[in-house]
Design a protein around this nucleic acid. Sequence first.
DNA 1: TTCTATGATTCAAG
DNA 2: CTTGAATCATAGAA
Length: 382
Amino acid sequence: MDAPQRPPRPAPPPPAPRRSPTGPPPGSSTGDVLQQIMAITDQSLDEAQARKHALNCHRMKPALFSVLCEIKEKTVSSIRGIQEEGPPDAQLLRLDNMLLAEGVSRPKKQGRGAAAAASAAAPGGRPSDRGLEHSGYRAKLSQIRQLYHSELEKYEQACREFTRHVTSLLQEQSRVRPVSPMEIAHMVGVIHSKFNSIQMQLKQSTCEAVMTLRARFLDARRKRQNFSKQATEVLNEYFYSHLSNPYPSEEAKEELARRGGISVSQVSNWFGNKRIRYKKNMRKFQEEATIYTAKTAVDATEVRGPGCQASCPSISHSSSSGPFPLTGPRDALVHLQTLACLQPTPRGGGLLAQARGGWPGKQMPTASPTGNPSSITSDASN
DNA sequence: TTCTATGATTCAAG
DNA sequence: CTTGAATCATAGAA
């Protein structure tokens, strides 16, 4: 394999170990020795062993060896050129990173930045993907991970065995031909790179499996599940108590999410849907509004005691105040202010006009920045 | 089965 | 980025 075109023999073998007085029979020339080497593969194992031994003990062996060394010296530079392996290519790096990010592979022992980043990831998933923490996904991912590691282990084992085999073979051969340690290292490198490419295929297919799993799971996410009663209640309470400005701040969303046991984005979705659906068909929501308005008022009363303006939630949606009536303490305040400023016409003016435009003048966040849960539904004092 | 309610997604606008 | 609007897709009721 690494034997290049043999140059024309420049000189006969060095004279040093030449024919000794007790020399071999005339037939055992260098050509004969080579002939024997070539014939070794045609022989049985025992026969070959015997021949090998004979060759090793042959008195011409040192001479032949030194010739081979000479030839080798001339060709070795060509090996040197390919000794260094290039850096792991980008594709492999990408695959590794992905497997790491998905929690399929573990960070390298001597891990640096990537390892630190990955260690933050929950086993079996990216922490950022709240929705992906479901058991089904994790179970599948863990299956993939197990398969990946067992296959990887198999490949590594095979690689080790093959490397050991080839190394010992080369060491054995080094008795009859010059095989430098560098050459052996090179062979090992070649073997490793072959096995690496197999490993890369494994990584590739693992990545594909993970991607498929993710895609399927994300699809499944569309299978909606209704929120719990608690969540709906919390959201509706906020919505109807902030009807003039149903745009919860980030803090409020977080608080609502926490209280409802849902995610912030679900809160955002819910409010987006709610605003639109409420506006489209306010009549339909009238009853709901009354319920939650009353509820909020009761809560507010409990907090502040009777006598406050919030304790009179008896507002009808068909009243002249339009679709976004005074439904809660804060709305009462906002509405009073608006009335004072805008002098709305009995129908269609003021808040109604605002509402038609889709709650245009967004108010300041209505939740207290302190994050006090009670402030979400009773913030009239702001 | 159909119908309705509702959570999620997509897309354009700002 | 958030939002409104349209739409999709499904759960659950009828």
